[in-house]
Design a protein around this nucleic acid. Structure first.
Length: 176
DNA sequence: GACAGATGAAGGA
DNA sequence: TCCTTCATCTGTC
């Protein structure tokens, strides 16, 4: 019988707070925004699987985590990261993956509109669906959905909150 | 199948 | 300009 490894959660300390990265057997599954102190305490109290807190951590996950940490710090400093760990998009739709791949191509300091992303994935009229895919993005910051603005150069929306989106853009030298 | 959504474009005041 | 309305497409339930 094959045992399934549970996702491993690891904290990532950054200037913007402590993110939580989740890894599966195949790569980075999710990146959670820093929570407030109360929620952090609750999260510490949660039952974790033993792999999480250092008893046993596969080498590959440790190296993915180093890449995640480095990439996150680069993005928060407004610079391009060199390498990302493999992303585990199992269970996500083809459309979402193509949108997220298009987002990964946006350079730091640059922005695109939802319409431009829709055109980039070959669905020029699917602008609203692009917004939906952005909101379903499990790896915010690294998959830069914050670099997508509405056509009128307004912020549009953001799953992590418009304030975070504005601050991320400001770090990259973009003023709204 | 109905509904919602992080849009875009067009038209009117 | 600003606001409203409508068309469009995809994901979720």
């Amino acid at each position: 019988m094959k045992t399934k490894i549970q996702p491993v959660e690891l904290p990532v300390a950054t200037v913007a707070g402590q993110f939580i990265a989740r890894y599966s057997e195949t790569g980075l599954v999710e990146l959670d925004w820093p929570k407030n102190e109360k929620r952090k305490a609750e999260s510490r109290k949660r039952k974790h699987n033993p792999a999480i807190w250092g008893l046993f951590l596969p080498t590959k996950i440790r190296s993915w985590h180093r890449l995640t940490e480095a990439a996150l710090k680069k993005v928060l400093a407004g610079r391009a990261f060199r390498k990302l760990p493999p992303l585990d998009w199992t269970g996500k739709t083809k459309f979402q993956k193509s949108v997220w791949r298009a987002l990964l191509k946006i350079a730091p300091g640059k922005t695109k509109s939802y319409g431009e992303i829709a055109r980039a994935v070959g669905r020029p009229k699917a602008v609203r669906a692009v917004g939906g895919a952005c909101s379903a993005n499990p790896v915010p910051v690294l998959v830069p959905c914050h670099r997508v603005l509405a056509a009128n150069h307004k912020l549009g929306g953001y799953s992590g909150g418009l304030d975070r989106k504005r601050r991320l853009l400001e770090r990259e030298g973009i003023k709204i």
